[in-house]
Amino acid sequence: MTTVSVAGLQVSYGKRVVLDDLAIELGVGVHGLLGPNGAGKTTLMRVLATVLRPDRGEVRLLGRRIDDRVGLRQARRRLGYLPQAFGFYPRFTVREFVEYFAWLREMPAARIPLAVDRAIERVGLLDRADDRMKHLSGGMLRRAGIAQAIVNDPRVLLLDEPTAGLDPEQRVEFRTLLRELGCDAVVLVSTHLVEDVAAACARVSLVDDGRLVFAGRPEELIAAGGDGDSGDSPIERGYTAVLRGARQVSR
């Protein structure tokens, strides 16, 4: 079932077109969003997170258009978002930070304490739940950010570079969490780490220069690469092959 649908999306920053007539359909499961720097991944995430209004195009989240005020509020209640770099309140404890976002997402009051503890536990920060945010390491801050994104059990979860700053063991645990979350939600993970996509994602989309140039399963991306393509792993070779092909077509 498609729960995120984007058609004819265009976003510009000044004269620079960042997303150009982009269309994408996402159903329940974990989706990887790949692409080089400046391809438009973060812009797409911001549009889907309802914090950036596109110049043109239609965006539907959970079947509702987000340019409709009522639909927007309903979608936001079921949305979780972790930006690439996020601001936080240094004097808040991890628990207060996550709880604040539970309130902002208008969760029922009675559900909040349990949901907060569950989200913190899922990211492995329960033993640091009462530490102030300013005392956390970069990786722990990232995990606190993931906890605020999942506290409301979102139906659409958008994670922009979630594994940046996580150590290898935490990344493995995070992939397990992603697979769990993807059982009943649309999870879109923007990343540069193609091995995360190969390990955790059911589908992958590749964006280059504001356009969707590939959408399929990770195995299909792997199959697109050959021995002559650059990259240290099969999926990296597939990634570079698809990018090269898309750029040749656009010339």
């Binding site: 911001r46 997170a49 309802t50 914090v51 927007l72 509020r73 309903q74 936001r76 209640r77 949305l79 978002y81 930006p83 996020f86 601001g87 936080f88 309140y89 976002f101 309130w103 902002l104 997402r105 208008e106």
Partner: peptide, 13 residues
Amino acid sequence: AGADEELERGTPL
């Protein structure tokens, strides 16, 4: 303003 305006205004409050 909040510590992360963008993150906060993406909520339904």
